[in-house]
Simulated scan of single mutants.
Amino acid sequence: MTPVSLSQYDCIFFDFDGVIADSVDAKITAFGELYDEFGPEVRRAVEDYQRAVPGETRFDKIPRFHREHLGIALSEAEIAQWCDKLSSIVLDEVVNSALLPDVPEVLAMLERQNIQAHIVSGTPHDELQIIVDRKGLAPFFRTARGAPEKKASIVRDIMATEGLTASQCLFVGDAMTDFNCAQQCDMAFLGRSEPFGNPFPTGTCVVQRLGEYFLSDNWNGAAGSANQNRAA
């Protein structure tokens, strides 16, 4: 579902990595370091998957990597241990990552217009709280929720709690997991993509900078930029 005028929305759901923070590369490197002891081929395969599927939670990725590349089936306790190990590698890197262009201005504008903003991330929930707090972002978001709860479940719960309908909400993400969440919740979706790689289906509205939509006086102008991004 294509976004319409911002004035139609009372609530914006944001993914975090690659939408709010420029932290996608930090996550790729961290996953590589996590599996470095198993050799360069495994590390490269893990990094390639993380690059291709950034939105999938580590609670799903780590058992997948162990199963497919190491032939090891992890127990729930072992998955938790490996997730904690990844957190110890990546937390400071994400905290120290820059906000993406236009993000401070967009968040300030949403606050002025009393439009709710929520983070819905594949990052573990407790880790996400630390990141949001240490980056000074907590005042701008009504909630920040993460894994292992699935994104669609989080979104539906927030809509029910806040008394919102899907038509009042917009989801902004950089991965197909975000696009799929918006579809599952029957709400509009705005993609954010780098110039060199748009992961979304043809016809998806995509911008490189959030300001192309949120800070534009003319929605048609933002849509035009999105069309150019799709063709790039």
Results as ranks from 00 to 15, higher is better:
residue 4 V to L: 03
residue 7 S to Q: 03
residue 11 C to Q: 07
residue 12 I to C: 01
residue 13 F to S: 02
residue 13 F to I: 05
residue 14 F to H: 12
residue 17 D to W: 01
residue 17 D to S: 00
residue 24 V to Y: 06
residue 28 I to N: 08
residue 30 A to K: 14
residue 31 F to V: 08
residue 33 E to C: 10
residue 35 Y to W: 14
residue 36 D to S: 14
residue 42 V to E: 14
residue 47 E to N: 02
residue 49 Y to M: 07
residue 50 Q to F: 07
residue 55 G to D: 14
residue 56 E to K: 13
residue 57 T to F: 08
residue 57 T to M: 15
residue 58 R to Q: 13
residue 59 F to N: 14
residue 60 D to V: 10
residue 62 I to A: 15
residue 70 L to R: 15
residue 72 I to M: 14
residue 72 I to P: 10
residue 75 S to T: 14
residue 75 S to A: 12
residue 78 E to S: 14
residue 81 Q to R: 14
residue 84 D to N: 12
residue 85 K to A: 15
residue 86 L to A: 09
residue 87 S to R: 15
residue 92 D to F: 03
residue 92 D to T: 08
residue 93 E to L: 02
residue 93 E to H: 12
residue 95 V to P: 08
residue 97 S to M: 08
residue 98 A to P: 11
residue 102 D to V: 03
residue 103 V to F: 01
residue 103 V to Y: 12
residue 104 P to Q: 03
residue 109 M to W: 10
residue 112 R to N: 13
residue 113 Q to T: 10
residue 113 Q to P: 07
residue 116 Q to S: 09
residue 119 I to E: 04
residue 121 S to K: 06
residue 123 T to R: 01
residue 124 P to A: 06
residue 129 Q to V: 07
residue 133 D to A: 11
residue 134 R to I: 01
residue 134 R to N: 02
residue 137 L to M: 08
residue 138 A to W: 06
residue 139 P to R: 00
residue 139 P to T: 07
residue 139 P to K: 06
residue 143 T to F: 05
residue 144 A to T: 01
residue 144 A to C: 05
residue 145 R to S: 05
residue 146 G to D: 05
residue 147 A to Y: 01
residue 151 K to R: 11
residue 153 S to Q: 09
residue 153 S to F: 00
residue 154 I to D: 13
residue 155 V to N: 03
residue 156 R to A: 10
residue 157 D to H: 09
residue 158 I to H: 06
residue 158 I to M: 08
residue 159 M to Q: 10
residue 159 M to S: 10
residue 159 M to D: 06
residue 159 M to G: 03
residue 165 T to P: 03
residue 166 A to D: 04
residue 167 S to N: 08
residue 169 C to P: 02
residue 170 L to Q: 05
residue 174 D to S: 01
residue 174 D to F: 03
residue 175 A to T: 05
residue 177 T to D: 11
residue 178 D to V: 11
residue 179 F to D: 04
residue 186 D to R: 14
residue 187 M to S: 06
residue 189 F to T: 09
residue 195 P to E: 07
residue 195 P to N: 05
residue 196 F to T: 07
residue 197 G to N: 15
residue 197 G to R: 14
residue 198 N to D: 04
residue 198 N to F: 00
residue 199 P to C: 09
residue 201 P to M: 08
residue 201 P to R: 01
residue 201 P to Y: 02
residue 206 V to G: 04
residue 208 Q to K: 09
residue 210 L to A: 05
residue 210 L to G: 07
residue 213 Y to A: 13
residue 216 S to I: 12
residue 216 S to W: 09
residue 216 S to Q: 11
residue 221 G to W: 06
residue 229 N to A: 07
residue 230 R to Y: 07
residue 231 A to P: 03
